[in-house]
Simulated scan of single mutants.
Amino acid sequence: MTIRRPRDLEAERAALRAAAERLLAGTPLRSTSGKLTAFELLRESGLRRDVAYGDHKDLVEEFQARAKAQHCTPAATQELADQKAELNKKLADATEALAKERAVTAALRRIIAELDLELDQAREELGQSGNVTRLPAPRRRPARR
């Protein structure tokens, strides 16, 4: 048999109020998006849906009304959205630059392979023709002391 501990309704209400204030101020602790929705309120408060809507529906509705009256995104959330847009642009620029560099690298690899083949052919032709005599490598003099 499991023992149920009694729920503290005042603590639950305090958690909902604190979560609502944090979301409206734009400083969420648990919410990843910071959106002013009932789902994010529940996530921020840490309460289950059935608890919030069963015993504290008035607080959820109050939060929804305050969020609707605000008519804007909290400043902290807007800053995060701006940073995300800036980082997405940087990522797109870096991706484009990387694609260009990969194209250049591929072209250079083809050129190197072609030049290597030409060098091998030139060495082979040079070895087959008897007209060219190779000179010995120059001798190095010992260093003076």
Rank of each mutant, 00 (worst) to 15 (best):
Leu117Arg: 13
Tyr53Asn: 03
Thr105Tyr: 14
Tyr53Val: 02
Arg5Lys: 08
Ser33Ile: 03
Pro138Met: 01
Leu80Phe: 14
Gly127Trp: 12
Ser31His: 01
Arg5Gln: 07
Ser31Phe: 00
Asp8Ser: 09
Asn131Gln: 13
Val104Tyr: 13
Gln128Tyr: 07
Ala122Pro: 02
Gln121Cys: 04
Ala19Cys: 07
Gly54Trp: 10
Arg22Asn: 03
Gly127Lys: 13
His71Ala: 08
Val104Gln: 15
Ala85Met: 03
Ala81Gly: 01
Thr32Glu: 12
Ala94Asn: 09
His56Pro: 01
Asp93Lys: 08
Ser129Arg: 07
Glu124Leu: 09
Leu24Gln: 01
Asn131Tyr: 12
Leu80Trp: 09
Asp55Ala: 06
Thr37Ala: 01
Pro74Leu: 01
Met1Val: 05
Gly130Ile: 11
Arg17Asn: 04
Leu42Ala: 00
Asp116Trp: 07
Asp93Glu: 15
Leu29Trp: 06
Leu29Val: 15
Ala69Asn: 08
Glu114Leu: 13
Met1Thr: 14
Ala25Tyr: 01
Ile112Arg: 14
Gln83Thr: 08
Thr32Lys: 13
Asp55Thr: 06
Ala94Cys: 11
Leu59Ile: 05
Thr37Leu: 02
Ala85Arg: 08
Leu135Asn: 12
Asp116Arg: 15
Lys100Asp: 12
Leu29Gly: 13
Thr32Leu: 12
Ser45Ile: 05
Gly127Asn: 12
Ala11Pro: 04
Arg13Cys: 08
Arg144Asn: 00
Glu86Thr: 14
Arg7Ser: 05
Arg66Asp: 02
Ala18Glu: 15
Ala75Glu: 07
Glu86Lys: 13
Arg144Ile: 00
Glu62Arg: 11
Ala38Pro: 06
Gln78Met: 13
Leu117Ser: 12
Ala38Val: 05
Leu91Pro: 00
Glu12Tyr: 05
Arg22Thr: 05
Ile111Ser: 13
Glu124Tyr: 11
Arg140Met: 14
Ala19Gly: 10
